[in-house]
Amino acid sequence: MSVSTKYELKLGVATREAFGKALVELGQKDPNVVVCDADLSKSTYTNFFEKEFPERFVECGIAEANMVAIGAGLAAAGKTAFVASFSAFVINKGFEQLRVTAAYPNVPLKVVGTHSGISIGEDGPSQMSIEDLSLACNLPGFTVLAPADEVSMKACIHLAAEIHGPVFVRAGRSKAAIVYTPGTEFHSGGSHQLLDGNDVAIFANGLLVAEAIRAAEALDAEGISARVIDIYCVKPIDRDAIVRASTECRAIVVAEEHLKDTGIGSRVAQVCAETTPCVMEFVGLTTYAESGTPEAVLEHYGLMAKDIVAAVKNVLARKK
């Protein structure tokens, strides 16, 4: 069976749009859900929720730090509170508030950062969020999710609402290839092995999951069997999946739309180092990007299937 038949990778909606739709579903299910935004509701798609439930939508204006702490106050008082903005703004401008008002007192605030990575494209580096997963992982108690497509985003937003603690969910601006069939289950500490293989394991999340699948298809044509794992839960990380990959494949590539020194790559490497070390290569960003179409920027900064293929070849050359 050819792997290319398993995943059509048909373009779905952007994960930010799936987030907006999931909020409406949550709002219908639970009158306790409230949503805050900082003047970006048309871009984060929290405006879907605002349209359905205007009385439960809290416009905070362009003041992300205040929004995060308002959300924490709502959550501390028992509301299921979501705050959303571009990831670059909510995580950077709101970081200290996330730390003091949510993480450290363990207030179950739900934070969604959209337009993450560099695939926001034309807006350029001030809006590009390339350090958000690292920062979110620096908040003890936070669950950190980075879903790949509309199906997993919807599931992760429902999951976020159920988790008894603070959660950060990373969403993107661009349309994302559909990887999952509706009904697939997602949980804290989980991952999904999307393709089986034993020569190398490729861990990816977000947009890079589809690229990893494409890379595996290309490698398959060359007789290289690549396992692809969507490591959608960045924290807590699925240690078992990493140990299985490192013992069975003995070579790992991690691919992410994030600074490669501080993203999931370092988290996967830490688990390997603590358990079953193996050779590894990392695909990610080394610095700030620049304006351009999302496709052009992703290609220029080396976040495509071909870059993952090259990393696989490098890691296999080092594999004993």
Partner: peptide, 15 residues
């Protein structure tokens, strides 16, 4: 940060 958190709590009471 306390005033923002307090406003969130006051808003929750209104909700």
């Amino acid at each position: 940060q306390g005033l923002s958190v307090g406003l969130g709590m006051a808003l929750a009471a209104k909700f």
